[in-house]
Protein backbone atom coordinates (compact mmCIF):
# COMPACT_ATOMS: atom_id res chain seq x y z
CA UNK A 1 0.00 0.00 0.00
CA UNK A 2 1.20 3.46 -0.78
CA UNK A 3 2.08 5.31 2.40
CA UNK A 4 0.41 8.47 1.13
CA UNK A 5 -3.08 7.00 1.54
CA UNK A 6 -3.12 6.74 5.35
CA UNK A 7 -1.05 9.90 5.70
CA UNK A 8 -3.44 11.96 3.57
CA UNK A 9 -6.49 10.50 5.29
CA UNK A 10 -4.99 11.28 8.66
CA UNK A 11 -4.21 14.87 7.64
CA UNK A 12 -7.75 15.40 6.36
CA UNK A 13 -9.28 13.92 9.50
CA UNK A 14 -7.07 16.11 11.65
CA UNK A 15 -8.18 19.23 9.78
CA UNK A 16 -11.82 18.17 10.09
CA UNK A 17 -11.34 17.93 13.83
CA UNK A 18 -9.57 21.29 13.80
CA UNK A 19 -12.56 22.89 12.10
CA UNK A 20 -14.87 21.31 14.65
CA UNK A 21 -12.82 22.57 17.59
CA UNK A 22 -12.76 26.10 16.20
CA UNK A 23 -16.31 26.33 14.91
CA UNK A 24 -18.46 24.41 17.37
CA UNK A 25 -20.19 26.12 20.23
CA UNK A 26 -21.34 23.27 22.44
CA UNK A 27 -18.56 22.00 24.70
CA UNK A 28 -19.42 18.35 24.09
CA UNK A 29 -19.21 18.82 20.34
CA UNK A 30 -15.78 20.34 20.87
CA UNK A 31 -14.80 17.22 22.81
CA UNK A 32 -16.00 15.08 19.90
CA UNK A 33 -13.80 17.06 17.54
CA UNK A 34 -10.84 16.59 19.86
CA UNK A 35 -11.49 12.86 19.66
CA UNK A 36 -11.36 13.08 15.87
CA UNK A 37 -7.99 14.82 16.01
CA UNK A 38 -6.60 12.21 18.40
CA UNK A 39 -7.80 9.45 16.11
CA UNK A 40 -6.08 11.05 13.15
CA UNK A 41 -2.84 11.01 15.10
CA UNK A 42 -3.44 7.35 15.95
CA UNK A 43 -3.87 6.46 12.30
CA UNK A 44 -0.58 8.13 11.51
CA UNK A 45 1.16 6.28 14.32
CA UNK A 46 -0.16 2.90 13.22
CA UNK A 47 0.59 3.43 9.53
CA UNK A 48 4.15 4.57 10.14
CA UNK A 49 4.72 1.74 12.57
CA UNK A 50 3.57 -0.83 10.03
CA UNK A 51 5.82 0.77 7.44
CA UNK A 52 8.85 0.93 9.73
CA UNK A 53 8.40 -2.57 11.10
CA UNK A 54 9.25 -3.81 7.59
CA UNK A 55 11.65 -1.11 6.50
CA UNK A 56 13.78 -0.87 9.63
CA UNK A 57 15.42 -3.55 11.68
CA UNK A 58 14.57 -2.77 15.28
CA UNK A 59 11.63 -0.46 15.94
CA UNK A 60 10.28 -1.76 19.27
CA UNK A 61 6.81 -1.33 17.71
CA UNK A 62 6.86 2.11 19.19
CA UNK A 63 4.10 3.41 16.94
CA UNK A 64 1.53 0.90 18.07
CA UNK A 65 2.55 1.23 21.71
CA UNK A 66 2.17 4.98 21.46
CA UNK A 67 -1.18 4.55 19.72
CA UNK A 68 -2.37 2.42 22.64
CA UNK A 69 -1.12 5.05 25.08
CA UNK A 70 -2.93 7.74 23.11
CA UNK A 71 -6.16 5.76 23.25
CA UNK A 72 -5.84 5.38 27.02
CA UNK A 73 -5.05 9.06 27.51
CA UNK A 74 -8.00 9.98 25.28
CA UNK A 75 -10.28 7.88 27.45
CA UNK A 76 -9.00 9.64 30.57
CA UNK A 77 -9.35 13.00 28.84
CA UNK A 78 -12.93 12.41 27.82
CA UNK A 79 -13.86 11.37 31.36
CA UNK A 80 -12.33 14.43 32.98
CA UNK A 81 -13.59 16.71 30.22
CA UNK A 82 -17.15 15.52 30.59
CA UNK A 83 -16.97 15.90 34.37
CA UNK A 84 -15.79 19.49 33.92
CA UNK A 85 -18.49 20.21 31.34
CA UNK A 86 -21.14 18.82 33.67
CA UNK A 87 -19.84 20.92 36.56
CA UNK A 88 -19.91 24.02 34.37
CA UNK A 89 -23.41 23.18 33.20
CA UNK A 90 -24.56 22.72 36.78
CA UNK A 91 -23.15 26.06 37.85
CA UNK A 92 -24.05 28.10 34.81
CA UNK A 93 -26.97 26.32 33.25
CA UNK A 94 -25.28 26.20 29.88
CA UNK A 95 -22.59 24.26 28.06
CA UNK A 96 -22.05 26.99 25.50
CA UNK A 97 -18.38 27.86 25.50
CA UNK A 98 -19.01 31.26 23.91
CA UNK A 99 -20.84 32.36 27.03
CA UNK A 100 -18.08 31.50 29.46
CA UNK A 101 -16.37 34.85 29.26
CA UNK A 102 -15.58 35.61 32.89
CA UNK A 103 -11.85 35.85 32.36
CA UNK A 104 -12.07 37.83 29.14
CA UNK A 105 -10.45 41.25 29.26
CA UNK A 106 -12.41 44.33 28.38
CA UNK A 107 -15.67 42.45 28.32
CA UNK A 108 -18.86 44.33 28.98
CA UNK A 109 -22.03 42.39 29.62
CA UNK A 110 -23.95 42.91 26.43
CA UNK A 111 -27.12 41.17 27.44
CA UNK A 112 -28.92 39.51 30.29
CA UNK A 113 -28.07 36.06 28.96
CA UNK A 114 -24.40 36.58 28.35
CA UNK A 115 -23.35 37.14 31.94
CA UNK A 116 -25.20 34.88 34.30
CA UNK A 117 -23.00 35.14 37.35
CA UNK A 118 -21.69 38.63 36.83
CA UNK A 119 -22.48 41.83 38.59
CA UNK A 120 -25.47 42.59 36.39
CA UNK A 121 -27.58 39.74 37.72
CA UNK A 122 -30.16 40.15 40.40
CA UNK A 123 -29.13 40.07 44.02
CA UNK A 124 -30.48 36.68 45.16
CA UNK A 125 -29.09 34.95 42.14
CA UNK A 126 -25.73 36.52 42.76
CA UNK A 127 -25.85 35.36 46.35
CA UNK A 128 -26.66 31.83 45.27
CA UNK A 129 -23.86 31.79 42.74
CA UNK A 130 -21.40 33.04 45.32
CA UNK A 131 -22.51 30.36 47.73
CA UNK A 132 -22.00 27.77 45.04
CA UNK A 133 -18.65 29.16 44.08
CA UNK A 134 -17.35 29.08 47.62
CA UNK A 135 -18.86 25.72 48.55
Amino acid sequence: MHLAYPAVLSALLFCTGLYGVLARRNAILVLMSVELMLNAVNLNLVAFDVWLSRAAEETLHSGQALALFTIAIAAAEIGIGLAIVLAVYRNRGTSDIDKLRDTAEGHEPDGPESDVSGSGASAPRTATEKAEATA
Binding site: H2, A4, W51, R54, H61
Partner: peptide, 13 residues
Protein backbone atom coordinates in the same frame (compact mmCIF):
# COMPACT_ATOMS: atom_id res chain seq x y z
CA UNK B 1 5.49 9.70 -2.86
CA UNK B 2 8.00 6.92 -3.25
CA UNK B 3 7.21 4.99 -0.09
CA UNK B 4 5.21 1.83 0.06
CA UNK B 5 4.03 -0.20 2.98
CA UNK B 6 4.71 -3.88 2.64
CA UNK B 7 1.58 -5.56 3.91
CA UNK B 8 2.51 -9.12 2.98
CA UNK B 9 3.73 -11.66 5.45
CA UNK B 10 2.92 -11.85 9.12
CA UNK B 11 0.67 -9.09 10.46
CA UNK B 12 2.65 -6.26 11.97
CA UNK B 13 0.24 -5.61 14.79
Amino acid sequence: RTTWIDLDGAPAG
